[in-house]
Structures are given as C-alpha cells and as structure tokens.
Amino acid sequence: MSRIDESKEFIPVRIAVLTVSDTRGLAEDRSGDTLVQRLTDAGHILADRQIIRDERAEIADQLRGWIANPEVDVVISTGGTGLTGRDVTVEAHRDVYEKEIDAFGTVFTMVSFQKIGTSAVQSRATGGVAGGTYMFALPGSTGACKDAWDEILRWQLDYRHRPCNFVEIFPRLDEHKRRK
C-alpha cells in the first residue's frame, strides 16, 4: 500500500526522540537507539534526544519545549504507554495535543496484532499534533518501535509517499492561527 513517488524530492524532517523510563540511561536505551538508527538511515535529522522519568508533568514540559523549538518538526517518544500505574506518557501527550491523530493508535494496533496477537490490546500508542509539531507515543519495546517506524512513520514522514503523508501538510497545521 505504500508508494513512493520517485519524481518528488525527499525532504528530511527534524525529529526529537524521547525515552520515558525510571530505570534506563543512554547506555541501556535500545528502543531510543532503534528509533535514532531508523530515522537517520531514512535520511531524517535527529534534532534532539532525551531520557525522562515517568512523570507526567516532566514529559509534558519536554514536549512543550520541543513544540516551541523551530528546529523540531516531530517528536517520537518510547515508553510509558502501558497499563501500569507509572505509565503516564499517553496522558502527558494528551495534555499537550491540540488535535489527536486517532487513527495512529488504531493502525499501530493493527500492525501489532499481526506480530503479537491479542497482546496488542495492552498498548496505548497515540499520536497528535500541537503548535505545528507532530508527536507520537510508542511502547518501550524495541519491537514496537521497529513496527511503528517500519510500518507507519517511515511512510508518513516521507514527502514522496502517496496518496498522502504528514510532511505535505506541515504548512497547514497552524493555518487557523494566521490572520485572515
């Protein structure tokens, strides 16, 4: 279903990666490493990378900081999307979203179901947009990060992808704020 229009030029996107974990440091952050490797291999730019504890306010503050930064187009977080008491990444993302991309979670669940069966119901992956910045919250497993990138984000963050993609509508994400 994913088609690349080779007549169009690739446009690199500036992506920040956020790992949400109470226990991982940079040396143990395999999921963050997976995302960084995949996005740079695809030709995109790593704008920033951080690791933050599972604290709703801290996560939301980091997201807001990146939204305010004109050098960040997209934020991908990994971790904290499960069902336990410490999993607050989804709530932090939703605190910040102007609009939720409802189908992102649905499509992620469809992709996950093909890989892990009914265990996919335990994921609360989400996507949204605020301040002209796309944000996606992925589970903390490397497999989930690979699946989300390889099956969804790789295509939607490629300007050449048809019939449509996230990159081509960047200029219109904040059109409601412009003076008429």
Rank of each mutant, 00 (worst) to 15 (best):
Val107His: 12
Trp66Leu: 13
Phe113Cys: 06
Val129Tyr: 02
Asp48Val: 13
Ile59Gly: 12
Trp149Val: 09
Thr84Gln: 07
Gly79Glu: 12
Ile101Lys: 06
Asp61Leu: 05
Gly143Trp: 05
Arg160Thr: 02
Val107Glu: 14
Pro171Gln: 08
Glu71Ile: 02
Arg178Met: 08
Lys180Asn: 07
Asp87Gly: 03
Val107Pro: 08
Leu153Pro: 06
Asp87Trp: 03
Asp147Asn: 14
Ile76Cys: 04
Cys145Asp: 08
Gly65Glu: 14
Ile51Val: 14
Gln114Thr: 15
Val72Tyr: 04
Lys99Met: 04
Ile76Asn: 05
Gln156Pro: 04
Leu173Ala: 01
Thr109Ile: 04
Ile169Gln: 05
Arg124Val: 02
Leu63Arg: 11
Arg124Ala: 03
Ile152Tyr: 03
Val88Thr: 07
Gly85Val: 06
Thr118Gln: 12
Ile52Trp: 06
Gly82Phe: 09
Gly117Arg: 15
Pro171Thr: 06
Asp73Ser: 09
Ser112Gly: 14
Phe170Leu: 09
Glu58Met: 11
Ser112Asp: 12
Tyr134Leu: 14
Val121Arg: 09
Met110Glu: 14
Arg154Pro: 00
Lys115Ile: 13
Asn165Trp: 00
Pro171His: 07
Trp66Asn: 12
Val88Tyr: 00
Val96Pro: 02
Glu151Arg: 15
Asp102Glu: 15
Met135Asp: 04
Asp174Gln: 09
Leu157Glu: 04
Gly143Asp: 15
Leu138Trp: 07
Pro171Lys: 06
Val74Lys: 04
Lys146Asn: 14
Val129Met: 09
Leu173Ile: 03
Met110His: 13
Arg56Trp: 01
Gln62Pro: 01
Leu138Lys: 02
Asp102Lys: 14
